[in-house]
């Protein structure tokens, strides 16, 4: 039955590879944050699965608790970042800032 857990963890990593597509392509930052958030949660699961595969669960579960407690802090910080900086898309930053500068110069 250990074998099944090994296959499960390999399947998890392959599905994480699929998510990397969204990290590379993801049109905006916040799409990337979503994909990274999912990868972070799944690495908790992978640590526990590895603990079962290596038969050292009592050792590895502490790391998983640390992740489980701290995982949402980074997402929270990234989300709070957008309260001040409302622009999500990086491609429009240069354009809008240039127009804003031009407007102030014109006045």
């Amino acid at each position: 039955m250990i074998n099944i857990f090994t296959w499960a963890s390999i399947l998890l990593i392959v599905l994480m590879l699929m998510l990397v597509y969204r990290i590379i392509v993801g049109p905006t930052v916040i799409d990337r944050i979503v994909a990274v958030n999912v990868i972070g949660t799944k690495s908790i699961v992978l640590i526990v699965l590895m603990g079962i595969i290596f038969d050292r669960l009592a050792m590895f579960v502490d790391i998983a608790i640390g992740y489980g407690l701290l995982n949402f802090i980074a997402s929270l910080a990234a989300a709070k970042y957008f309260k001040k900086h409302h622009r999500i898309d990086s491609k429009n930053i240069t354009a809008t800032e240039h127009t804003a500068k031009g407007a102030t110069n014109g006045h």
Partner: peptide, 14 residues
């Protein structure tokens, strides 16, 4: 975290 991200997306220009 999901709620915070949704709020960030909702307040911005998506």
């Amino acid at each position: 975290a999901t709620h915070a991200l949704i709020e960030a997306g909702y307040n911005s220009e998506i």
